[in-house]
Design a binder for these strands. Structure first.
Lengths: 351, 351
DNA sequence: TTGTACGCGTTATCAT
DNA sequence: ATGATAACGCGTACAA
């Protein structure tokens, strides 16, 4: 009497064993045909196994594979958020690159909390991913780096790889944009266009990469050789709202004197624009605005926003590359300014 | 002679066995303390295990847990893309809800290909997730639904749950927005504002939810009781570019006659605006525009775009809910119009 | 080339 | 309450 599967109730998933039995071969043989890399299987067996797998709808149990192989084809991506246009673009780029490298990506969201990040890394270690990519940036609470570093080190010791994107605050391999140089070049070009007096919106959260943008911009404007350069650096909350609110809180006289607002991200630049408009200023007639990142959203913004373009795909590809290979050194991907209508040429001020 | 770990080379990850040995208890006991739900362990043992785990930096191997328990706390999200503002917001909402339900989310991106979707579902089955949530929509190639359905059915038979979001083209539980009603109400409100002659931008890809938006809008305008209603429905490529290009290809006379463009998504509405501006039209002075979804991007768009708001969090929460519990019936979440400056009141045409 | 036997890290069943 | 022991599904030496 053959034992037939009853139609009721949740059946058990089809296993390799089932396939092997159905094909009349041993389990290892089925394994070799379906998952193994060496193809030392007779064609007749091969076909029977394939057919059986197809008929039964077999799918390898990834967990079992991972545990048997001791390694998985998953990389974990830890990111601040996913609804933010910049980060979602970054996540998309990484998933694209990962996929073409035959990797799965497991995304974990920090919500801009260091504690959460630590917790996540700990949990991710349990997934035994091939690599952990930290693309987060922008924390609400102060860095508790030590524990995080320790956790990551432990992970590395067990063969995992750690890659940082756009942040170099931890002692691990990093791939970043050339934040300083990008911002510097932007400032130089803006100086040529006649801009002298700028408000720079940095980040209240101390982030190295963001600080570099601030410093690059200030340096660029200063070294332009132009007379009458004035830069005021402020550090509102690191968000659209933060930028907008800071603009709203600005002293009227101070605002009047400004020719330009440079925000360290497009997101903040857009928040600044919102604030400026709330105060009755027209862009760029009354005041110019520039950002950084060149997010997709900009295509729908009027006037077109001057910004610094960053090659997400290149960074993502480098990151994946380093996630797989022992790698050698850090990498800096160029960033270059794109002048658009939000910063037209103006007359150099008479002073 | 104690066997000491050498400092060189990748160490093996710390296992439950290591912890147990270090604490001088059996493996099952360690398991009960660290992962088991029943806490029938003496306090002294309990503490020793905890300490050992902490000291060694133990993290449970999720793959091993999954295989031993026969179930995981992961849900798989299949989505069209992640860089699109609507989908990234949807993904974010789902991750939020999932997290507060103690679930991990594994995201897979379709890239708008049905073949890819099928492939993904097959692969996802291997991850043995608790549920598979399909939030994709918008396919480039024609639906090969049968195979997909079969694959999903097989998954369900093994105890997995399948939940559809914003699409009801497959015979599985669905949670959708009230696309028809939302669009209908929008049309009614616009009719009140004086709009009569509208171009409706649908989708070349036949998607039920999108078709409902088209039909709802057309119906709403028709039933408004106003005289001289004219609606033209077109089906450009389902994207920003598709909408823009369609506008650019429009006959000059036809364009002149229009009072309003309604696009089935904000994304397309923004593309339409870009096209209209390229043709020298001002919004809303020369022509009004309305969209659907109420994506975040809209906060930076001028003029503020009239649209239909959808409660992503509610949908996400419903989806997660259904992903966990056997569930009962489909759910439709309301969508309501938001009138903004892109569709000001106009005089009813003299005809 | 194919099959037997064992190990991967964990949970679950069952004595003790 | 605790500890042997058997699964879970798969990969892989090793033997045949």
């Amino acid at each position: 009497m053959t034992e037939t599967q009853s139609d009721a109730g949740p059946r058990r998933p089809v296993t390799l064993d089932d396939v092997a039995r159905h094909a009349g071969v041993s389990q290892p043989t089925a394994s070799r045909v379906l998952n193994g890399s060496d193809r030392k299987v007779a064609e007749s067996y091969r076909k029977r196994v394939m057919d059986a797998a197809d008929e039964l709808g077999y799918t390898p149990n990834l967990a079992a594979q991972a545990i048997a192989r001791g390694t998985s084809r998953t990389v974990a991506l830890v990111i601040s958020g996913i609804s933010d246009p910049y980060f979602s673009a970054m996540a998309a780029a990484i998933m694209r690159q990962a996929e073409s490298a035959g990797l799965r990506v497991s995304i974990a969201v920090t919500e801009r909390s260091v504690d959460r990040e630590l917790e996540l890394v700990r949990e991710l270690r349990g997934q035994q991913p091939r690599a952990i990519i930290l693309a987060g940036t922008g924390y609400v609470d102060p860095p508790s780096g030590d524990q995080l570093v320790e956790e990551l080190r432990r992970y590395e010791e067990t063969g995992g790889r750690v890659v940082l994107i756009s942040r170099s605050d931890l002692p691990f391999e990093t791939v970043t944009f050339d934040n300083h140089e990008g911002a510097r070049q932007l400032a130089v070009e803006l100086a040529v266009l006649g801009y002298r007096r700028a408000l720079v919106l940095g980040s209240a959260t101390p982030l190295l990469s963001m600080q570099q943008r601030v410093e690059g911009f200030v340096a660029g404007l200063a070294e332009s050789g132009a007379d009458g350069v004035e830069t005021v650096v402020r550090h509102p909350e690191f968000s659209w709202q933060g930028a907008r609110e800071h603009i709203l809180s600005l002293d009227e006289n101070e605002l009047q004197r400004l020719q330009l607002v440079f925000a360290i991200t497009d997101d903040m630049a857009l928040g600044a624009i919102a604030g400026l408009r709330d105060r009755g200023l027209r862009i760029p007639d009354d005041i110019a605005v520039a950002g950084f990142d060149d997010i997709t959203t900009l295509r729908d913004v009027v006037p077109p926003l001057t910004t610094v373009h960053v090659a997400l795909d290149e960074v993502a590809s480098e990151a994946i590359e380093r996630a797989l290979n022992p790698a050698s050194s850090d990498r800096t991907v160029p960033a270059y300014p794109i002048i658009r209508a939000s910063t037209p040429a103006i007359e150099a001020p008479a002073l």
